Deep mutational scan, measured.
Amino acid sequence: KSEISQVFEIALKRNLPVNFEVARESGPPHMKNFVTKVSVGEFVGEGEGKSKKISKKNAAIAVLEEL
């Protein structure tokens, strides 16, 4: 299972809201860097990556460590 689906499963079991959002985009158009924030109830994680998908996955990994 992907880290993102694990976050949603845990949140569902604990009845917590999940929110993913792109917090920052930086860099030139051909080499963008994304920072995504995820919140699961009061737990927050942040991930960085060269694409929105990678930064979302890294944010999920960060919040899984707290859950």
Rank of each mutant, 00 (worst) to 15 (best):
L16E: 05
E21F: 12
G45R: 08
P17Y: 07
K1F: 03
V18R: 02
E42A: 14
V63E: 04
K1N: 12
A11Y: 00
V40Q: 04
L12I: 13
F43T: 09
A23S: 12
A59M: 01
L12K: 13
V38S: 05
N19W: 08
N15E: 08
V18E: 04
F8Y: 15
R24W: 08
E46G: 05
I61W: 03
L12V: 10
G27A: 08
G27H: 07
E46Y: 13
S55A: 11
V40L: 09
E66Q: 15
K53P: 07
K1E: 08
E42V: 07
N58Q: 11
A59D: 02
I61P: 04
E9Q: 13
E25R: 13
V38Y: 01
A60S: 07
L16M: 11
K32Q: 11
P17A: 11
S51F: 00
Q6V: 06
I54W: 03
K53E: 13
A60F: 12
E66K: 15
P29R: 12
E25T: 14
E21H: 12
L16S: 03
K50I: 10
G41F: 00
N19D: 08
K37Y: 02
T36G: 02
N15I: 03
A59L: 01
E65G: 12
T36M: 01
V44L: 10
V38E: 04
H30Y: 09
S55G: 01
F20K: 05
F34Q: 05
N19R: 15
P28G: 11
A59N: 02
F34K: 02
S51E: 04
V7D: 02
N58H: 07
A59H: 00
K1H: 02
A23I: 14
G45E: 05
P28L: 08
A60H: 01
N58W: 00
E3R: 04
M31L: 11
A23L: 14
E46P: 00
E9R: 08
L64M: 09
K57T: 15
E48I: 15
S55H: 00
K32Y: 09
N19K: 15
L67M: 14
A62T: 06
V40Y: 01
A59E: 01
G41W: 01
E21M: 09
G47H: 04
K56I: 11
I54M: 12
G45M: 03
H30K: 14
E3Y: 11
V35N: 06
V7R: 03
M31P: 11
V18H: 01
